[in-house]
């Protein structure tokens, strides 16, 4: 860990001022915001992140940790902890996939610490990224190459990858937010703005060291998740070898709006398999207007993984991902939910 100046931001304008050089799009920006610290402190110890200034924004939690359910949807404060939102009765009832994605993530201790804003920005678990003794990592050292492509890539992404980076996005909540048309509320030096959640994380696009579209000094203040018939008939299925406290081998966020046996609308997100929080409009399109059975579910999952690219160690991922999504879809269909919302 390199030396840094520690500062506390008492309010948003102070955060934006102190964090003017955060440049969070860059993985190694010299200024970093600290909330729960579960990613930042870890990566600083590993010498992967070397900020010279750490701006503690936890005081913003006084105003930015709320959970509010309205007729328009769900609002989540970015400084709310994962455990608070996971346990929130409104979220559990109206957005079960969100609650499940949080309660299936990490451990109780980490969920008590981590903020939602920090959680969606969680960094990849790629071992070559997390250890600077590996020379080649395009995400950590732009232009240095990718060791994982020909190395150990058991838990690397198969969707949204390119020849520069196959790192996997390890989070769970982000997968649901991507599927559910969520918006991110941002506050920065030039004021507040809204961003589609699916635009928060950048595609690999040859520049894996640029992870997000956050502007310098911007803080995530909250998330809006729109209301929809699919939010109640929703779930998050996480497949892993351990029963708990493990990142996904494959996961699926599914929300269904059903008209009897027929799918009116579907929302599908995939985790454990993609470069960034992954929504699959291809799979959703296959389902709309069709009866949901094994065959249509399989057709949807084939569409979802049509573009999968594997590298040896992760050859099993598309198949496991497909099976996970089929299981999630059929399980969501059989959820005891009244369609009236």
């Amino acid at each position: 860990m390199r030396p840094f100046t520690y500062e506390r931001a008492g309010d948003l304008s102070e955060a934006s001022r102190l964090g003017a050089n955060t440049g969070q799009g860059q993985t190694d920006a010299p200024v970093q915001f600290l909330a729960g610290g579960t990613t930042l402190v870890d990566l600083m110890k590993l010498d992967v992140l070397r900020p010279t200034r750490v701006v503690d924004i936890s005081p913003l939690g006084a105003d930015l940790a709320g959970v509010a359910l309205t007729s328009r949807g769900l609002h989540l404060g970015a400084l709310a902890t994962m455990s608070k939102v996971a346990e929130h009765p409104d979220v559990r009832r109206a957005y079960p996939a969100i609650a499940e994605s949080l309660s299936l993530a990490a451990s109780d201790q980490l969920r008590n610490m981590a903020s939602l804003g920090g959680n969606v920005l969680q960094r990849t678990r790629c071992p070559y990224y997390r250890d600077p003794s590996w020379e080649a990592c395009n995400k950590r050292r732009p232009g240095s190459g990718c060791t994982a492509i020909q190395g150990y890539n058991h838990n690397h992404a198969v969707l949204g990858v390119d020849e520069n980076c196959i790192a996997q996005y390890p989070g769970d909540l982000g997968v649901v937010l991507a599927a559910f048309d969520a918006e991110v509320e941002l506050s920065g030096p030039s004021g507040a703005r809204l961003l589609a959640f699916t635009s928060l994380h950048r595609p690999a696009d040859g520049e894996p060291h640029l992870e997000t579209n956050l502007r310098p000094g911007e803080v995530i203040t909250g998330f809006n998740v729109p209301a929809g018939a699919w939010t109640r008939r929703s779930l998050y299925l996480k497949v892993r070898d351990r029963s708990s406290y493990e990142f996904a081998l494959a996961s699926a966020a599914v929300g269904l709006d059903m008209d009897g046996e027929t799918v009116r609308q579907a929302r599908i997100g995939l985790g454990g398999v993609a470069y960034r929080p992954w929504r699959s409009p291809e799979a959703e399109a296959v389902l709309v207007g069709k009866p949901l059975d094994e065959a249509t579910a399989k057709a949807a999952t084939d569409a979802a993984f049509a573009g999968a690219v594997t590298h040896g160690g992760n050859d099993f991922k598309p198949e496991l991902g497909r099976r996970t999504l089929v299981r999630a879809l059929l399980q969501a269909q059989s959820l005891p939910v009244s369609e009236a919302s």
Binding site: R125, P127, Y128, G151, Y152, N155, D241, R242, S243, S244, Y245, E246, F247
Partner: peptide, 16 residues
Amino acid sequence: YVNHNLADYLIPVNAD
């Protein structure tokens, strides 16, 4: 070695 930590070298947790 590439999984030399307790998140990636799996040992059972209580739920297992």
